[in-house]
């Protein structure tokens, strides 16, 4: 049986919301005999990840090359830089979402920084074309960082050089971002 909440609309008229629990069919099916334990499944899953990770460098290098191409197109036509933003986001999200799983956490970190930069520009209602001089070099710095990490095949947390690279990235992004509103 459902319970109803009474909530008030702006004009004072009362609207009702129902809160109810549908049957949990997944629970019934997942409870069938012959299941696996969490440990068994995680172990099996980690083997899958290890297997896929063996060829991830090729995938990542292709994505980095694509990002580099997009960044170059932006520099060649800075007034139209924002037209390339969706593609830059798409490839950036690929790298952010996959690299750490495959053993390249610093690539995820750099891609994350790029995505955050693009999101922060959008939140500040600033187009890349509005401030091309700081914005496009900031994008390019991310590209170079990704190239470097993949060229050196940096897995794991990296060393002092890589940390300095990440710190430099943060500094450049901070300078390129407009003052946050509100």
């Amino acid at each position: 049986m459902a319970n109803s909440d009474e909530t008030k609309k702006q004009d004072g008229e009362v609207a009702k919301a129902e809160v109810f629990t549908p049957p949990n069919l997944l629970k019934i099916r997942a409870s069938a005999p012959g299941g696996k334990t969490m440990d068994e499944m995680v172990e099996a899953g980690m083997s899958v990840v290890s297997g896929l990770a063996k060829n991830y460098a090729d995938i990542a290098n292709a994505d980095v090359a694509e990002i580099a191409g997009i960044a170059a197109a932006m520099r060649q036509a800075p007034t139209k830089a924002d037209e390339f933003r969706p593609e830059l986001m798409r490839v950036g999200l690929n790298l952010k979402g996959q690299a750490a799983t495959m053993g390249y956490p610093l690539v995820t970190e750099v891609a994350h920084s790029l995505i955050d930069f693009l999101d922060d520009m959008k939140k500040a209602n600033r187009r890349l074309a509005d401030d091309p001089k700081p914005a496009l070099p900031a994008v390019q710095f991310h590209v170079e960082a990704l190239r470097l990490l993949m060229a050196k095949d940096v897995k794991g947390k990296g060393g002092p050089t890589e940390r300095a690279l990440i710190d430099g990235l943060k500094s450049i992004v901070a300078k390129a971002l407009p003052e946050q509103a509100g």
């Binding site: 919301a17 809160v19 109810f20 629990t21 949990n24």
Partner: peptide, 13 residues
Amino acid sequence: ERRGVPQPAQDSP
């Protein structure tokens, strides 16, 4: 407490 409290399904284990 005015929020609706969901009723559990009766046919789940």
